[in-house]
Amino acid sequence: MIGQTTATPVGHEPLITRYRGLICDLDGVVYRGAAAVPDAVETLNRLTADGVPVVFATNNASRSPEDVGDHLRGLGIASQGWSVVTSSQAAAAHLAHHLDRGTRVCAVGGPGIARALTEAGLTPVSVAELGDDQVEAVVQGLGFDVTWRELAAVGYLVQAGATWVATNLDPTLPTPHGNAPGNGVLVAAVQAAAGTSPHVVGKPRAALLDLARSRLGTSRPETLVCGDRLDTDIEGAHAAGLDSLFVLSGASRLRDLVFAARSQRPTYIAADLAGLLTPGLPLSSTASGDHTDSALDAALRADSTADYGELLQTVVATAWAALDNGRAISDDPDLWGEIERKLGLVPQLEPRKIT
């Protein structure tokens, strides 16, 4: 069974054997737009078949967990062994802890917000339904049909004393056409008008990951977070006290990782989710930074016989050590892009066979 610890020396067994549960991001990790990321479906089905529970945790508040689940099953994810938690649910859980059951809460955003509030025992109210009755709180999340009137209403409610909860502050939303404005842009508009800030529950705050871990029923040392964004997934894992695997199948790139702040440095790195099934040592900035140039040269000279995973870990660890010791290293995007290409880290169009 994959999720159980074996006697195999550390560094030789599949990475996931060190953990009893996985919290996994979605966009850029499991799928990109409507299509699955190569190797993701096969890897996740292997994990759940071997008894490793998975919770998919997403900042996207516009869809319900049921809608997300339908998307995942449509990609070929097996129907058992996993669940979905959203930032809408984290917002509802936060308010349910502080408000009486049945309390009216204004919901601004996609349908997932009202659904989560109802499930938490609260009463969602749209802006059109507000009337003259007061609400105790307002939840603001991404919605594709959010209007100026709704944003203005959030500001009015906040200024009148309502508790303001934002599902997330993501500045962008990936789409097939490029990045679109995310919920963070809409929240910033209200914040500028209201002169105050919301309570935020989505990544990189800990609340969403704490909710996901409660679903798994695992302790912090038993839980691994996997994501493709350093500023949300990996920083969120740090905030929640969890180890993390950063995958290069989505938004953040190798250059971003090398120059990331300490709060955004992951425990492990892999090309994609298939890295969970391969050996992996924790990245460490304790490696000597004296050999950074040679590590970069080795990566640039890599051929098909090289151990790309080991080279990748060496490059990142030595670069971090150099930076931490005050040494300068090149931040040339072309250099880091070429290293990605040499190590096979450019997102693939076809899956590899997982053995």
Score class of each variant (00 low, 15 high):
V105M: 02
S294D: 15
G112M: 05
D67I: 11
T103V: 12
A92W: 05
H98L: 10
I269R: 02
P279H: 06
L242R: 08
A166R: 06
L254W: 00
D132H: 12
A90W: 02
G21P: 12
A240K: 03
A240T: 03
R341L: 08
V37N: 09
I354P: 09
L245K: 06
A116H: 04
R46A: 15
D332P: 11
G74R: 14
L254C: 00
H97V: 01
C24Q: 04
S83C: 09
A91I: 00
E136Y: 03
T355E: 15
A299I: 05
I113A: 05
T48E: 14
K203N: 13
S219K: 10
T175Q: 01
A317T: 13
S64L: 10
D228I: 01
D332L: 08
V29A: 06
T305E: 05
V154D: 01
L44A: 15
G195M: 05
G110T: 06
D100G: 09
L283Y: 11
A166L: 13
H97Q: 04
A319E: 00
P347D: 14
A306F: 01
G51Q: 02
I354D: 08
F259L: 04
L230P: 08
V30K: 11
R255Q: 14
G143P: 10
V29Y: 04
V247A: 08
K203A: 10
I77K: 01
G131L: 12
R205S: 10
L186M: 15
D132W: 06
D290W: 06
T8S: 05
A239D: 05
V258S: 02
C226W: 03
A7P: 07
P204R: 03
R262T: 14
L208S: 12
R220I: 09
G109K: 06
A261T: 03
N59L: 05
M1N: 14
L273Q: 05
T86H: 07
T355S: 15
T86M: 00
V55H: 05
A237M: 07
L216E: 15
R265T: 13
I16T: 09
Y156R: 09
Q80V: 02
L248V: 00
T48M: 15
G109W: 02
D243K: 11
Y308P: 01
G202I: 02
L75Y: 11
S88L: 00
D332T: 09
R255L: 07
P171W: 07
P38F: 08
V84R: 00
E129H: 05
A120S: 08
L254D: 01
A194C: 04
T17S: 14
L343T: 06
P171K: 08
L47C: 13
A328N: 00
A321V: 10
A153M: 15
V10I: 15
L311R: 01
